[in-house]
Amino acid sequence: MLIYRPDGGVAQPPAQLAPSPAVLAGRRIGILDNQKPNANVLLGQLAERLADRTGANVVRTETKNAATACEDQVLGLLTEEVDVILTGTAD
């Protein structure tokens, strides 16, 4: 029996991940806190440990709500001031 696939094609995603830097020393690590409970604690401690081990700097930012896309203003700030972003999804 011949049938159609039910999924169809995929469009170009609106954004792609940039290549990861090979070395973090001297880089700026941004924390994109999605406002979920404890996200700031987990991401903050992770960033600080990474900075301690690698000599990177930490920049903190946050979105208004985990359920919506990051605001353009925050993305602009990250683009200007950050080389690597730590973030997370879910709770």
Binding site: P6, D7, A11, P13
Partner: peptide
């Protein structure tokens, strides 16, 4: 014709694909 692009997969919803799922 693509009538919508649906995240998170960014799948292209053509009328034909919608018809496929309607049949199913």
């Amino acid at each position: 014709e693509v009538v919508a692009v649906l995240p998170p997969r960014f799948g292209e919803a053509t009328r034909r694909i919608l018809a496929v799922n309607a049949v199913m």
